[in-house]
């Protein structure tokens, strides 16, 4: 009995926090838009009992999903989001791996401090951190002042409101999600493995590629998914740092919802986004599981 309860609690949360909201969104995606409160029809009216419920079901259709296929905006936005997510995940890996590596190789006494420094930015609001990047990257911002002051450039660079700024923002924001899992795998790694590789004829560099990288693979995969999954649907960073040419599905969804007041189409966009995300999430879970099995747990 108690055991059943213990198992039931997490499932209940999953049901309440994931499945129910998803079903609501799915239902809206099958509805039609209307100028009313709420701005779609049909709404569920249980006063008419079973017949009312059947009428409600009968009024749902897939029209909004077919609509999404008629305009290239949507798949372009999905593709562009995917592209931005892939590129920024790669960039985050490029920046994050050396940091994680440096931390894992640092003196043991320093590691908690370094770890703290990575986590520290989380203690301030995400929004404030993104806003401060606006201050750094703008035309008259600190970066341009510094570069002009140093004489590196003569004219200020336009970085804010471009895709470059979006990449900077994403890499900055999600860096800890990349660093922490990689650090965890690197820190566990036995340093004598690298000596063994060198002893067996590897140069430092090839030891890194043949031993360090494969052994941190699970951390790299975990980190990449942790960055990739939220980046696809990212809205705040492209809105604040991106320019008008930054096309992302999060923004399209916003426009469907707010500008067109078309909740059903917005919901359809969200449902498809979720389906796209389910694939990497499943792969991620599988990686985690394989990792646990490999460690014999």
């Amino acid at each position: 009995m108690r055991r059943a309860l213990v198992i039931a609690v997490p499932y209940f949360w999953l049901l309440a926090l994931f499945l129910v909201p998803f079903l609501i969104v799915l239902k809206i995606s099958l509805s039609d838009t209307e100028l009313a409160i709420p701005p779609y029809t049909p709404t569920l009216d249980l006063s008419e009992g079973w017949a009312g419920f059947r009428a409600f079901l009968a009024a749902l259709d897939l029209e909004n999903f077919t609509f999404l296929t008629t305009d290239d905006l949507y798949w372009k936005a999905y593709l562009s989001s995917l592209q931005i997510a892939v590129v920024s995940t790669f960039l985050t890996l490029l920046v994050g791996y050396p940091i994680a590596y440096g931390m894992a190789r640092a003196d043991e006494a320093w590691r908690p401090t370094l770890l703290m420094l990575v986590i520290l930015p989380f203690w301030t609001s995400f929004l404030i951190r993104v806003y401060s990047w606006m201050g750094i990257l703008s035309q008259e911002g600190y970066l341009n002042q510094l570069l002009v002051g140093l004489g590196v450039i003569s004219e200020p660079l336009t970085i804010l409101n471009t895709n470059t700024a979006v990449y900077i923002g994403i890499v900055y924001t999600y860096l800890p999600f990349m660093i922490l899992p990689i650090y965890a795998t690197l820190e566990r790694m036995d340093a004598s493995l690298l000596e063994a590789a060198e002893d067996l004829g590897c140069s430092r560099l090839s030891a890194f590629w043949l031993v360090t990288v494969p052994l941190s693979k699970s951390g790299i995969i975990a980190g990449c998914f942790l960055v990739f999954i939220p980046t696809i649907g990212e809205f705040v960073i492209p809105s604040l740092l991106g320019g008008s040419q930054t096309l992302m599905i999060g923004k399209v969804l916003w426009e469907e919802f707010f500008s067109n007041r078309d909740w059903p189409v917005a919901s359809a966009v969200a449902v498809i986004l979720l389906l796209i995300l389910v694939i990497p999430i499943i792969l991620f879970q599988r990686n985690e599981q394989r990792q646990r099995e490999a460690e014999g747990k």
């Binding site: 838009t33 905006l73 008008s244 930054t246 096309l247 399209v252 469907e256 500008s259 067109n260 007041r261």
Partner: peptide
């Protein structure tokens, strides 16, 4: 009207994103 609104929003997205 909502039909025209959709045309306007779509056009606006096209203009802004350059696609």
């Amino acid at each position: 009207p909502s039909k025209v609104q959709r045309v306007v929003t779509r056009m606006w997205t096209r203009i802004k994103s350059g696609t």
